[in-house]
């Protein structure tokens, strides 16, 4: 192995170790202090004391945070690769907001319920939003430039969020359930709700991994990628589809969680370099760890109440986003 590969493997190892640590923290630490005996008992499935019951709630939430974090991290890395746009993010490009609008519309007007239907609706909304943003961003001279995509995405995000709000405000019957969901959180998790996500996540993650090499070539420009035998439109389409599926599923179940897809790939790129065959797995591990950490932090900072992960990621993500833009001095925008 070359020194670069050793460095990458080393960082990936560190990230995995940190992930295990964070997952353990997430199960053992929370708003309620639970003794080790109860934690041990709860892990074997017992729910006799309040402590054991609390741990039994933490488990599926932790699993959901791990899965959602991995999916959003990978989706962010894929979107940044596809658009060659460092500030790209499923949140900023309107994909999450589109998924949210679709789900809320479904709940408010079409009596949407059940996890399968919600997940499909989320994916559909994410797909429509990303297609719309890409179409608008491609208008005019020069095609889909990073600046136009970012502007179109931001505008779409705001528009979709406004529609969502308008829908919810007029409907007292759904406002409560939608509002909790809309902040973005893992609080409502149960193993039964997580199971239907798994096939979608599996497909999305595998498809993303399969496009890693193509993303490496697309990073060199469409002409170069094409000259090296990449079917550019097809490669970009499959990669985007993978990201849309991942975002759609996560948003349908957790609500829109912002900034994770932006911050995680950036962090990984600093550690790993720009090879997507390393960047994507690293984004999965770091994304899972970071979202779980946000879940832990949300329970510690506001004891005895909880802060949803959507708020924690926004608090961490917004300054990091500004730092990224400043560091790039808006290069490429």
């Amino acid at each position: 192995m070359s020194p670069l590969q050793l460095t990458r493997a080393g960082w990936l190892g560190v990230a995995c170790a940190a992930l295990v640590l964070v997952a353990a923290l997430s199960v053992t630490v929370g708003t309620r202090a639970v003794g080790w005996a109860d934690i041990g008992a709860a892990l074997t499935g017992r729910t006799e004391t309040i402590g054991q019951a609390a741990v039994n709630l933490r488990l599926p939430r932790t699993v959901l945070a791990l899965l959602a974090g991995a999916a959003l991290g990978v989706a962010g890395a894929v979107m940044q690769g596809v658009t060659r746009n460092p500030p790209a993010d499923p949140g900023l490009l309107g994909v999450n907001a589109g998924a949210a609008l679709a789900v809320v519309t479904g709940i408010a007007w079409f009596g949407l319920s059940g996890s399968q239907a919600t997940i499909w609706t989320g994916i559909g909304g994410a797909a429509v939003a990303s297609a719309f943003v890409y179409a608008v961003g491609s208008l005019g001279q020069g095609g889909a430039t990073p600046l136009k995509l970012t502007l179109a995405g931001a505008a779409t995000s705001i528009a979709a969020a406004s529609f969502t709000l308008a829908l919810v405000l007029g409907r007292n019957d759904v406002a409560g359930s939608v509002q909790a969901w809309q902040v973005g959180g893992v609080g409502g998790a149960s193993m039964a709700a997580i199971a239907p996500m798994l096939p979608f996540l599996m497909v999305g993650l595998l498809a993303a991994w399969a496009t890693a090499r193509h993303l490496n070539m697309l990073a060199l420009g469409d002409d170069t990628a094409s000259a090296f035998g990449v079917r550019v439109v097809w490669a970009r389409g499959t990669a985007l589809a993978a990201a849309v599926v991942l975002c759609g599923v996560v948003t349908a179940v957790c609500g829109p969680i912002g900034f994770l897809g932006l911050v995680v790939p950036h962090l990984c790129r600093l550690l790993m370099g720009v090879d997507h065959r390393w960047l994507l797995p690293a984004s999965a591990v770091v994304g899972a760890g970071l979202l779980t950490l946000a879940y832990v932090a949300g329970r510690i900072v506001a004891r005895p109440s909880e802060v949803d992960v959507g708020i924690v990621t926004a608090l961490i993500g917004a300054p990091v986003f500004i730092a990224i833009l400043r560091r790039q001095r808006l290069r490429g925008l």
């Binding site: 670069l4 990073a219 060199l220 420009g221 002409d223 720009v274 090879d275």
Partner: peptide, 16 residues
């Protein structure tokens, strides 16, 4: 084919 102005992502090494 080598295009006229190929682009490389920030931070890519020569070997990569």
């Amino acid at each position: 084919l080598l295009p006229q102005q190929p682009v490389a992502p920030d931070g890519i090494t020569v070997a990569d």
